[in-house]
Design a protein around this nucleic acid. Structure first.
Lengths: 131, 131
DNA sequence: CTCGATGCAAACGATTTGCAAAATT
DNA sequence: AATTTTGCAAATCGTTTGCATCGAG
Protein backbone atom coordinates (compact mmCIF):
# COMPACT_ATOMS: atom_id res chain seq x y z
CA UNK A 1 0.00 0.00 0.00
CA UNK A 2 2.49 2.58 -1.23
CA UNK A 3 1.29 6.09 -1.43
CA UNK A 4 0.61 6.79 -5.04
CA UNK A 5 0.94 10.11 -6.86
CA UNK A 6 -2.39 11.85 -7.11
CA UNK A 7 -2.57 11.20 -10.84
CA UNK A 8 -2.67 7.49 -10.11
CA UNK A 9 -5.54 7.88 -7.70
CA UNK A 10 -7.31 10.03 -10.22
CA UNK A 11 -6.90 7.35 -12.86
CA UNK A 12 -8.16 4.59 -10.59
CA UNK A 13 -11.44 6.44 -10.24
CA UNK A 14 -11.95 6.27 -13.97
CA UNK A 15 -11.34 2.56 -14.39
CA UNK A 16 -13.99 -0.11 -14.01
CA UNK A 17 -13.38 -3.82 -13.71
CA UNK A 18 -13.60 -5.80 -16.93
CA UNK A 19 -12.98 -2.77 -19.03
CA UNK A 20 -9.98 -2.59 -21.29
CA UNK A 21 -8.68 0.82 -22.30
CA UNK A 22 -5.65 2.21 -24.03
CA UNK A 23 -3.76 5.04 -22.38
CA UNK A 24 -5.19 7.43 -24.91
CA UNK A 25 -8.76 6.28 -24.45
CA UNK A 26 -8.39 6.59 -20.72
CA UNK A 27 -6.89 10.05 -21.05
CA UNK A 28 -9.70 11.13 -23.36
CA UNK A 29 -12.29 9.87 -20.94
CA UNK A 30 -10.74 11.75 -18.05
CA UNK A 31 -10.32 14.88 -20.09
CA UNK A 32 -13.98 14.91 -21.04
CA UNK A 33 -15.14 14.44 -17.47
CA UNK A 34 -12.87 16.77 -15.62
CA UNK A 35 -10.71 19.79 -16.20
CA UNK A 36 -8.25 18.49 -13.63
CA UNK A 37 -7.49 15.37 -15.65
CA UNK A 38 -3.81 14.44 -15.86
CA UNK A 39 -2.09 15.05 -19.16
CA UNK A 40 -1.42 12.28 -21.62
CA UNK A 41 2.22 11.92 -20.57
CA UNK A 42 1.24 11.74 -16.95
CA UNK A 43 -1.35 9.16 -17.84
CA UNK A 44 1.34 7.03 -19.44
CA UNK A 45 3.65 7.51 -16.49
CA UNK A 46 0.95 6.73 -13.97
CA UNK A 47 -0.19 3.60 -15.74
CA UNK A 48 3.38 2.40 -15.55
CA UNK A 49 3.32 2.90 -11.81
CA UNK A 50 -0.03 1.18 -11.43
CA UNK A 51 1.34 -1.73 -13.44
CA UNK A 52 4.25 -2.12 -11.07
CA UNK A 53 1.87 -1.96 -8.14
CA UNK A 54 -0.21 -4.64 -9.89
CA UNK A 55 -3.35 -2.58 -9.52
CA UNK A 56 -3.66 -2.73 -13.26
CA UNK A 57 -2.70 -5.39 -15.79
CA UNK A 58 -1.66 -4.78 -19.35
CA UNK A 59 -3.47 -6.50 -22.16
CA UNK A 60 -1.80 -6.94 -25.50
CA UNK A 61 -3.92 -7.32 -28.56
CA UNK A 62 -2.25 -7.56 -31.90
CA UNK A 63 -2.39 -3.96 -32.99
CA UNK A 64 0.70 -2.89 -31.10
CA UNK A 65 -1.32 -0.71 -28.78
CA UNK A 66 -0.93 -1.41 -25.08
CA UNK A 67 -4.17 -1.56 -23.17
CA UNK A 68 -4.85 -1.60 -19.48
CA UNK A 69 -7.35 -3.15 -17.16
CA UNK A 70 -8.16 -2.68 -13.51
CA UNK A 71 -7.56 -5.82 -11.45
CA UNK A 72 -7.78 -6.81 -7.85
CA UNK A 73 -4.25 -6.12 -6.65
CA UNK A 74 -1.87 -8.84 -7.74
CA UNK A 75 -4.40 -10.88 -9.68
CA UNK A 76 -4.57 -11.25 -13.42
CA UNK A 77 -6.50 -13.07 -16.08
CA UNK A 78 -6.72 -13.59 -19.82
CA UNK A 79 -9.24 -12.98 -22.56
CA UNK A 80 -11.11 -14.49 -25.43
CA UNK A 81 -11.58 -11.91 -28.11
CA UNK A 82 -14.06 -12.32 -30.94
CA UNK A 83 -12.39 -11.34 -34.19
CA UNK A 84 -15.69 -10.44 -35.78
CA UNK A 85 -17.71 -8.47 -33.25
CA UNK A 86 -15.01 -7.61 -30.73
CA UNK A 87 -16.76 -9.22 -27.79
CA UNK A 88 -14.32 -9.91 -24.98
CA UNK A 89 -14.71 -12.74 -22.50
CA UNK A 90 -12.73 -12.33 -19.31
CA UNK A 91 -11.58 -15.77 -18.21
CA UNK A 92 -11.87 -15.91 -14.48
CA UNK A 93 -8.82 -18.04 -13.88
CA UNK A 94 -5.35 -18.09 -15.35
CA UNK A 95 -4.72 -21.66 -16.45
CA UNK A 96 -1.03 -21.16 -17.02
CA UNK A 97 -0.45 -21.40 -13.30
CA UNK A 98 -1.09 -25.12 -13.63
CA UNK A 99 1.91 -25.47 -15.89
CA UNK A 100 4.29 -23.61 -13.71
CA UNK A 101 5.69 -26.68 -12.04
CA UNK A 102 5.78 -28.80 -15.17
CA UNK A 103 7.61 -26.09 -17.07
CA UNK A 104 9.92 -25.57 -14.17
CA UNK A 105 10.84 -29.26 -14.18
CA UNK A 106 11.06 -29.74 -17.92
CA UNK A 107 13.03 -26.66 -18.78
CA UNK A 108 14.49 -25.54 -15.48
CA UNK A 109 12.66 -22.27 -15.92
CA UNK A 110 11.17 -20.21 -13.15
CA UNK A 111 8.11 -18.47 -14.58
CA UNK A 112 7.64 -14.85 -13.64
CA UNK A 113 5.25 -13.41 -16.17
CA UNK A 114 3.44 -14.31 -19.32
CA UNK A 115 1.40 -12.86 -22.09
CA UNK A 116 -1.63 -14.71 -23.37
CA UNK A 117 -4.63 -13.68 -25.38
CA UNK A 118 -6.88 -15.87 -27.48
CA UNK A 119 -8.71 -14.86 -30.61
CA UNK A 120 -11.57 -16.53 -32.39
CA UNK A 121 -15.27 -16.39 -33.00
CA UNK A 122 -17.88 -16.02 -30.30
CA UNK A 123 -20.97 -18.13 -30.25
CA UNK A 124 -23.07 -15.69 -32.20
CA UNK A 125 -20.49 -14.96 -34.85
CA UNK A 126 -19.76 -18.64 -35.37
CA UNK A 127 -23.30 -19.21 -36.57
CA UNK A 128 -23.51 -16.01 -38.54
CA UNK A 129 -20.26 -16.68 -40.37
CA UNK A 130 -21.69 -19.85 -41.93
CA UNK A 131 -21.98 -17.99 -45.19
CA UNK B 1 1.61 -23.61 -52.31
CA UNK B 2 0.81 -20.18 -53.67
CA UNK B 3 3.39 -18.57 -55.79
CA UNK B 4 5.05 -15.96 -53.69
CA UNK B 5 6.60 -12.68 -54.82
CA UNK B 6 10.34 -13.02 -55.24
CA UNK B 7 11.01 -10.89 -52.17
CA UNK B 8 9.30 -13.56 -50.07
CA UNK B 9 11.48 -16.29 -51.49
CA UNK B 10 14.49 -14.12 -50.92
CA UNK B 11 13.53 -13.66 -47.30
CA UNK B 12 12.95 -17.35 -46.73
CA UNK B 13 16.55 -18.02 -47.67
CA UNK B 14 17.70 -15.79 -44.86
CA UNK B 15 15.65 -17.32 -42.08
CA UNK B 16 16.72 -20.29 -40.01
CA UNK B 17 14.50 -22.34 -37.74
CA UNK B 18 14.50 -21.35 -34.08
CA UNK B 19 15.71 -17.89 -34.84
CA UNK B 20 13.65 -14.89 -33.95
CA UNK B 21 14.20 -11.67 -35.86
CA UNK B 22 12.54 -8.32 -36.18
CA UNK B 23 11.78 -6.99 -39.63
CA UNK B 24 14.60 -4.54 -39.29
CA UNK B 25 17.13 -7.11 -38.14
CA UNK B 26 16.16 -9.33 -41.02
CA UNK B 27 16.43 -6.48 -43.45
CA UNK B 28 19.83 -5.54 -42.11
CA UNK B 29 21.04 -9.09 -42.43
CA UNK B 30 19.90 -9.30 -46.03
CA UNK B 31 21.32 -5.93 -46.87
CA UNK B 32 24.72 -6.90 -45.57
CA UNK B 33 24.81 -10.15 -47.51
CA UNK B 34 23.44 -9.10 -50.83
CA UNK B 35 22.99 -6.03 -52.93
CA UNK B 36 19.73 -7.43 -54.24
CA UNK B 37 18.13 -7.45 -50.82
CA UNK B 38 14.55 -6.18 -50.69
CA UNK B 39 14.02 -2.76 -49.14
CA UNK B 40 12.73 -2.35 -45.62
CA UNK B 41 9.19 -1.63 -46.76
CA UNK B 42 9.20 -4.66 -48.98
CA UNK B 43 10.52 -6.70 -46.09
CA UNK B 44 7.56 -5.61 -43.99
CA UNK B 45 5.14 -6.32 -46.80
CA UNK B 46 6.63 -9.71 -47.51
CA UNK B 47 6.62 -10.80 -43.89
CA UNK B 48 2.94 -10.00 -43.85
CA UNK B 49 2.44 -12.31 -46.79
CA UNK B 50 4.53 -15.06 -45.23
CA UNK B 51 2.49 -14.73 -42.06
CA UNK B 52 -0.73 -15.26 -43.99
CA UNK B 53 0.80 -18.26 -45.69
CA UNK B 54 1.83 -19.52 -42.26
CA UNK B 55 5.42 -20.01 -43.35
CA UNK B 56 6.38 -17.66 -40.58
CA UNK B 57 4.91 -16.99 -37.16
CA UNK B 58 5.01 -13.73 -35.30
CA UNK B 59 6.43 -13.60 -31.82
CA UNK B 60 5.47 -10.80 -29.50
CA UNK B 61 7.79 -9.86 -26.72
CA UNK B 62 6.92 -6.91 -24.58
CA UNK B 63 8.86 -4.19 -26.29
CA UNK B 64 6.24 -3.46 -28.91
CA UNK B 65 8.46 -4.76 -31.68
CA UNK B 66 7.04 -7.54 -33.81
CA UNK B 67 9.41 -10.41 -34.43
CA UNK B 68 9.24 -13.28 -36.84
CA UNK B 69 10.25 -16.87 -36.91
CA UNK B 70 10.40 -19.48 -39.62
CA UNK B 71 8.07 -22.41 -38.99
CA UNK B 72 7.07 -25.57 -40.78
CA UNK B 73 4.07 -24.41 -42.74
CA UNK B 74 1.01 -24.15 -40.52
CA UNK B 75 2.74 -25.12 -37.32
CA UNK B 76 3.52 -22.84 -34.43
CA UNK B 77 4.95 -22.91 -30.93
CA UNK B 78 5.67 -20.70 -27.95
CA UNK B 79 8.68 -19.60 -25.97
CA UNK B 80 10.22 -19.31 -22.57
CA UNK B 81 12.31 -16.19 -22.40
CA UNK B 82 14.85 -15.60 -19.67
CA UNK B 83 14.50 -12.05 -18.43
CA UNK B 84 18.08 -11.91 -17.30
CA UNK B 85 20.21 -13.46 -20.02
CA UNK B 86 17.74 -13.49 -22.90
CA UNK B 87 17.95 -17.22 -23.50
CA UNK B 88 14.95 -18.45 -25.45
CA UNK B 89 13.54 -21.94 -25.13
CA UNK B 90 11.35 -23.01 -28.03
CA UNK B 91 8.62 -25.23 -26.63
CA UNK B 92 8.05 -28.00 -29.08
CA UNK B 93 4.32 -28.26 -28.62
CA UNK B 94 1.57 -25.72 -28.23
CA UNK B 95 -0.35 -26.72 -25.12
CA UNK B 96 -3.23 -24.41 -25.79
CA UNK B 97 -4.57 -26.85 -28.32
CA UNK B 98 -5.61 -29.02 -25.39
CA UNK B 99 -7.94 -26.31 -24.16
CA UNK B 100 -9.62 -25.71 -27.44
CA UNK B 101 -12.54 -27.97 -26.74
CA UNK B 102 -12.96 -26.97 -23.15
CA UNK B 103 -12.96 -23.30 -24.05
CA UNK B 104 -15.32 -23.97 -26.88
CA UNK B 105 -17.75 -25.66 -24.52
CA UNK B 106 -17.43 -23.26 -21.63
CA UNK B 107 -17.60 -20.03 -23.54
CA UNK B 108 -19.02 -20.98 -26.90
CA UNK B 109 -15.88 -19.67 -28.49
CA UNK B 110 -14.19 -21.07 -31.55
CA UNK B 111 -10.47 -20.49 -31.16
CA UNK B 112 -8.60 -19.29 -34.20
CA UNK B 113 -5.40 -17.77 -32.96
CA UNK B 114 -3.60 -16.93 -29.81
CA UNK B 115 -0.64 -15.09 -28.46
CA UNK B 116 1.42 -16.60 -25.70
CA UNK B 117 4.90 -15.97 -24.42
CA UNK B 118 6.30 -16.78 -21.03
CA UNK B 119 8.98 -14.87 -19.19
CA UNK B 120 11.08 -15.84 -16.23
CA UNK B 121 14.49 -17.03 -15.19
CA UNK B 122 16.38 -19.85 -16.82
CA UNK B 123 18.14 -22.47 -14.80
CA UNK B 124 21.45 -20.69 -14.70
CA UNK B 125 20.06 -17.28 -13.89
CA UNK B 126 17.88 -18.69 -11.13
CA UNK B 127 20.93 -19.78 -9.20
CA UNK B 128 22.93 -16.70 -9.99
CA UNK B 129 20.16 -14.36 -8.90
CA UNK B 130 20.26 -15.72 -5.37
CA UNK B 131 21.91 -12.52 -4.25
C1' DC C 1 13.38 25.03 0.70
C1' DT C 2 13.63 20.56 -1.52
C1' DC C 3 12.16 16.97 -4.26
C1' DG C 4 8.88 14.54 -6.59
C1' DA C 5 4.98 15.17 -9.82
C1' DT C 6 3.29 17.37 -13.85
C1' DG C 7 2.48 19.58 -18.54
C1' DC C 8 4.07 20.73 -22.89
C1' DA C 9 6.38 20.22 -26.96
C1' DA C 10 9.73 17.82 -29.22
C1' DA C 11 11.84 13.44 -30.08
C1' DC C 12 11.57 8.56 -31.07
C1' DG C 13 11.06 4.19 -33.28
C1' DA C 14 8.60 0.84 -35.47
C1' DT C 15 5.55 0.43 -39.09
C1' DT C 16 2.63 1.97 -42.99
C1' DT C 17 1.47 4.39 -47.10
C1' DG C 18 1.36 7.17 -51.63
C1' DC C 19 3.19 7.17 -55.71
C1' DA C 20 5.90 6.55 -59.59
C1' DA C 21 9.24 3.34 -61.66
C1' DA C 22 10.37 -1.48 -62.61
C1' DA C 23 9.41 -6.18 -63.26
C1' DT C 24 6.42 -9.98 -64.29
C1' DT C 25 2.92 -12.39 -66.96
C1' DA D 1 -0.41 -4.01 -72.44
C1' DA D 2 -2.18 -4.99 -67.97
C1' DT D 3 -1.09 -6.19 -63.40
C1' DT D 4 1.74 -6.92 -59.62
C1' DT D 5 5.83 -5.84 -57.05
C1' DT D 6 9.15 -2.66 -55.47
C1' DG D 7 11.84 1.42 -53.56
C1' DC D 8 11.88 5.80 -51.68
C1' DA D 9 10.47 9.37 -48.91
C1' DA D 10 7.05 11.08 -46.23
C1' DA D 11 3.47 10.27 -43.06
C1' DT D 12 1.50 7.91 -39.00
C1' DC D 13 0.82 6.60 -34.48
C1' DG D 14 1.62 5.17 -29.98
C1' DT D 15 4.81 6.18 -26.64
C1' DT D 16 8.81 8.42 -24.30
C1' DT D 17 11.69 12.15 -22.87
C1' DG D 18 13.85 16.83 -21.69
C1' DC D 19 13.07 20.48 -19.31
C1' DA D 20 11.03 24.07 -16.86
C1' DT D 21 7.32 24.81 -13.57
C1' DC D 22 4.27 23.50 -9.87
C1' DG D 23 3.03 21.86 -5.46
C1' DA D 24 3.20 18.96 -1.37
C1' DG D 25 5.67 18.17 2.86
Amino acid sequence: MNKLPSSCKFILQFLKYNEILSAQELHERMRLSSSKAPSLSTTYRSLEILLKEKQVQSVEFRDGEKRFELVKIGEHHHHLICETCGTIVHMEECSIIHWKNRISEEHGFLLKQHVMEMFGLCNLCTTVTDQ
